[in-house]
């Protein structure tokens, strides 16, 4: 058990990775950058629990805020519209300040 790797406000990117199997990081956000908006806490890893292994190490879970215009280059709405998504720490990497 260690504390959260990313503080609230940290710019993060969802890793560009496409493994097979049960994954809860949505495909449409892989490689997209946003910022941590809420540290939810530690939970069992769904990528393990989905296969019946319930007792492995827990993972920190965050809510990450994305600007729609950073997710969809052709986003039709105004620039302040956002998405908020729960993402486990193993799917996050530090992103440049430009994404904040």
């Amino acid at each position: 058990m260690s504390g959260p790797r990313f503080p609230v406000g940290a710019p993060v990117r969802i890793r560009r990775a496409w493994p097979p199997g049960h994954v809860r990081a949505p495909w449409y956000l892989r490689g997209r950058s946003g910022a941590i908006c809420h540290i939810i806490g530690e939970f069992g890893n769904p990528e393990e629990m989905a296969y019946g292994r319930y007792d492995g190490p827990k993972l920190m879970l965050y809510r990450v805020r994305f600007r729609q215009v950073d997710v969809w280059p052709d986003y039709a709405g105004p620039p302040q519209d956002t998405l908020q998504v729960e993402v486990y720490e193993n799917w996050l990497e530090a992103a440049g300040e430009e994404a904040a």
């Binding site: 049960h22 769904p46 629990m49 989905a50 019946g52 319930y54």
Partner: peptide, 14 residues
Amino acid sequence: RRILRVDELRRGIE
């Protein structure tokens, strides 16, 4: 009971 988890249900559906 904890015979199965919702994560397993989802994996099975996928």
